[in-house]
Design a protein around this nucleic acid. Structure first.
Length: 804
DNA sequence: CAGAGCCGTATTTTT
DNA sequence: TACGGCTCTG
């Protein structure tokens, strides 16, 4: 082996990183703490593989986001260019199954699966190109299915079904794998039915939703050994980034691909797993050593990003989690300033404080500019107060994330037109634009068309055409005429689509449909903005075309489909290119979207119980639940974004959702070793009494966490000073106070059912009414309203309730 | 069929 | 509070 330490990619690595780079054969886990040079290590590893003679095309690196994939691709290209050895002769080799023959395959899970499915979809019975349905499309489709089943309006919340279906797909569960008893009040049965039908309709629309892309790719490989073999024989070396965020389906897919050669390197940080709610299973990374007992475990623990205070502070918080490897982040950086914790009377004062502090730091010595500052909050709702202050004090800011360009109505409409041209069976798109702009094809007309199509077992569009051919009698002639015009128009577009560039088709549609004309006629600010968006979208189209042309793609349906797939998969393509406005402004975003970023100065406002950790993560009886652990990881992620100075603040009173709430400081603040903290209390008029930070916590602790007292008195009584203890062991043999009784999803407590509306008695709070039941049968949560409109949430696992 | 008003509902977000 | 989605009405 060529352990050439002089080569730039090895010599600039630390010992652990180098170890990870050199471990090219067999299973490897790289636990990469925040700011430990993870990407650099990954890139070096790819470089090293190639350096030692591995054909780049045999390397597959999978990431989660397009952004990560793009960056990695970019850096790999740079390495390949500088390496420069004998790539030139293979450069012109034919691509294999749509994969480059001279570049490693670096892609997101989803785009990799799309490539795979596109190659093999005939095996799944697809004769035509498939569409990718995004969240909105899913919801539209689900609404149709729910209507079809006549599911009562109060249960017909399509979002709920979408959530459950997505969740199932994350677990690679089909409709048949669902256990209806895991859900309440008949929802389980409905779910199975709706899910099954939803899949049917999806298939007839030639569409996959995001979840399907993974699951179907997995099933395809699982059920077709010869296909699996083909890919296994192509991708000899697998790398998976952010492995802690993989869901079950992704896990299955990766492990299937890696099964033959076992050259699987997973990189991640269990302390930064913050996506459980969308299916990420932290066990995938925690259990990697079980899956591959011979796996090499490499920990990257040296942080190059932050000061010692920040690293020690963040470590102090995260070490309270149980579900993690024994891993300690350290840094050789300077100690730095203490973490500043400021308590403020309300959210306005909090915002003002942050504004003032930003000004102060920027004036300090001209060392920092606005773009060095980030404000990271738990939820978007928190941004308002800050925005007001920033506007007032002329602090330029930019909100990262939020409502995306791709969600805009006009863009979705344009896309829907384009989609039908490739795939007329795309019912969701057809319904979206059949009367946009208004052309007199109303709901009742379309209902008749749908009925016709269903009874003739045709797709909506095919049914529509047939109906017109047969001279439909069920609809009035005027409607039939309008439908015929519509079909004719689509037909023209379809012809055009067979040979034209995407931009030509696009402009033709906007023109011929009168879409833009209508907007122009409206002549409002809003319509002007929409027109501008459509123009911007035109730029996106052209951008894609240039690229496609360079890759030797010919105009026509293939190009159009390529465009549609890419646009759906990479919403970021559609993101407004307002880069110039981002320079020189403070970044504001949720903690979630801050993952992977770093800023010299970071503010974490809203460090309050109920905000952060979020209200829904807090249960009365389970002081430190898994949900809290996830919030804690989020806190860890937030804290470790800071390079030089970290501010954490809490407001004693906060107006949120039009209501006033009083919350104690976040428990996470109390987990930071006190010697690293510099605390300050800013009192406002009428708020905040004279007790200190510590005593306030002590009193709040007992006031707000009765469960804590209960737990510690029943298990141990080591509550003194800050070194409190509570029962962390959720698997402790606590007596179950309920049991699943029937498939309808009701529980029995003392022989009686707990259901919404039931009167119950709680030892501490007395009598109350059950308001909400949620969670699975094995982990049921119940929200009860006690007298004085006091709402409390309990985990049935831990609470004792008497049903009256 | 469009606009007005009303209701319900509000973590986190990528693909 | 604020927004989006749905219903009712003209």
């Amino acid at each position: 082996m060529e352990n050439d330490l002089d080569s730039p990619y090895l010599s600039s690595l630390n010992e652990r990183q180098r170890e990870a780079v050199l471990a090219t054969v067999g299973p490897v886990t790289v636990l990469a703490g925040a700011g430990s040079g993870k990407t650099k290590t990954l890139i070096s590893r790819i470089a090293h593989l190639i350096h030692t003679g591995v054909n780049p095309a045999n390397i597959l690196a999978v990431t989660f986001t397009n952004k990560a994939a793009a960056e990695m691709k970019h850096r790999v290209e740079a390495v390949l260019r500088s390496g420069g050895k004998n790539n030139s002769q293979i450069r012109w080799a034919q691509p294999w199954m749509g994969f480059s023959s001279y570049m490693p395959e670096v892609s997101t899970f989803h785009s990799f699966c799309v490539k795979l499915l596109r190659n093999e979809s005939h095996l799944l019975g697809y004769t035509r190109p498939f569409m990718i349905y995004d969240d909105d499309d899913q919801i539209s489709l689900l609404k149709k299915v729910l209507e079809e089943f006549d599911i009562s309006p109060k249960n017909a919340n399509p979002k709920r079904f979408k959530g459950a279906i997505d969740q199932a797909k994350c677990q690679a569960q089909g409709p048949g794998d669902i256990d209806p008893t895991e859900h309440f009040g008949g929802f389980g049965e409905q779910l199975v039915k709706v899910y099954r039908r939803y899949q049917e309709v999806l298939k007839s629309a030639h569409a996959f939703d995001f979840g399907d892309l993974i699951v179907e790719a997995y099933k395809l490989l699982r059920d077709h050994p010869e296909v699996l073999e083909k890919y296994q024989e192509h991708f000899h070396y697998l790398m998976v980034d952010e492995y802690q965020d993989t869901n079950r389906a992704q896990y299955l897919l990766v492990n299937l691909l890696a099964k033959k050669r076992r050259n699987l390197c997973v990189v991640g940080d269990e302390d930064q797993s913050i996506y459980k709610w969308r299916g990420a299973d932290i066990k995938n990374i925690l259990d990697f050593q079980k899956d591959y007992p011979d796996a090499k475990l490499i920990k990257l623990e040296q942080n190059y990003r932050s000061t010692q205070s920040i690293i020690k502070g963040a470590s102090g918080v995260i070490k309270n989690n149980k579900g993690r490897y024994d891993k300690t982040l350290w840094t050789a950086n300077e100690p730095g300033e203490k973490i500043k914790w400021v308590q403020l009377p309300n959210e306005r004062a909090e915002a003002d404080f942050i504004g003032r502090e930003i000004q102060k730091w920027l004036n300090r010595n001209g060392e920092f500019t606005f773009q060095d500052v980030a404000v990271l909050y738990r939820s978007h709702a928190q941004s308002r107060a800050m925005e007001e202050t920033f506007r007032r004090s002329k602090i330029p800011y930019r909100i990262v994330g939020g409502v995306g360009f791709y969600e805009r109505r006009e863009i979705k409409d344009a896309l829907a037109y384009l989609r039908i041209l490739v795939n007329p069976d795309d019912t969701v798109s057809l319904l979206r634009i059949v009367n946009v702009p208004t052309r007199g094809i109303g709901k009742s007309t379309m209902e008749k068309v749908e009925a016709f199509a269903t009874s003739h077992r045709l797709s909506l569009y095919a049914g529509l055409k047939k109906m017109l051919e047969e001279g439909a009698t069920s609809i009035p002639p005027s409607a039939a005429k309008k439908l015929a015009e519509f079909v004719k128009m689509i037909g023209k577009f379809q012809d055009l689509a067979k040979r034209s560039m995407v931009s030509e088709i696009y402009h033709n549609i906007l023109d011929a449909t009168g879409y833009v004309a209508e907007l122009k006629a409206e002549n409002s600010d809003e319509s002007a903005a929409r027109i501008q968006n459509l123009e911007e979208f035109s730029t996106v189209v052209q951008f894609f075309e240039e690229d496609a042309k360079n890759r030797g793609m010919a105009p026509g349906e293939g190009m159009l489909q390529g465009f549609l797939n890419q646009v759906t998969l990479e919403a970021s393509l559609l993101e407004k290119k307002d880069e110039e406005s981002s320079t020189g402004s403070v970044s504001m975003m949720t903690l979630h979207s801050s993952k992977g970023l770093e800023f010299p100065l970071v503010f974490l406002p809203g460090c309050e119980e109920g905000i952060f950790p979020s209200r829904s993560a807090i249960t009365e009886e389970d002081f430190d639940s898994e949900a809290i652990e996830e919030e804690r990881r989020l806190c860890y992620v937030g804290m470790t974004r800071a390079k030089l100075k970290l501010f954490m603040t809490n407001a004693q009173i906060r107006q949120i959702y039009g209501q006033t709430q009083v919350s104690p400081a976040s428990r996470f603040l109390h987990e930071i070793p006190p010697e690293l903290l510099e605390s300050e209390i800013v009192r406002g008029e009428g708020v905040g009494t004279s007790f200190g930070v510590r005593s306030q916590w002590e009193s709040e602790k007992s006031r707000n966490f009765p469960s804590y007292q209960k737990k510690s008195s029943s298990s141990s009584n080591s509550s003194s000073g800050r070194s409190y203890e509570y029962d962390l062991d959720s698997s402790s043999p606590s007596e179950p106070t309920y049991q699943v009784k029937s498939a309808a999803g009701t529980e029995a407590t003392g022989g009686k059912e707990i259901k919404v509306g039931a009167r119950v008695n709680h030892g501490t709070y007395g009598q109350g009414t059950v308001k909400v039941l949620e969670g699975s049968a094995s982990d049921r949560k119940v929200t009860i309203e006690f007298s004085g409109r006091l709402l409390k949430k309990f985990s049935l696992k831990h609470v004792e309730l008497e049903v009256m």
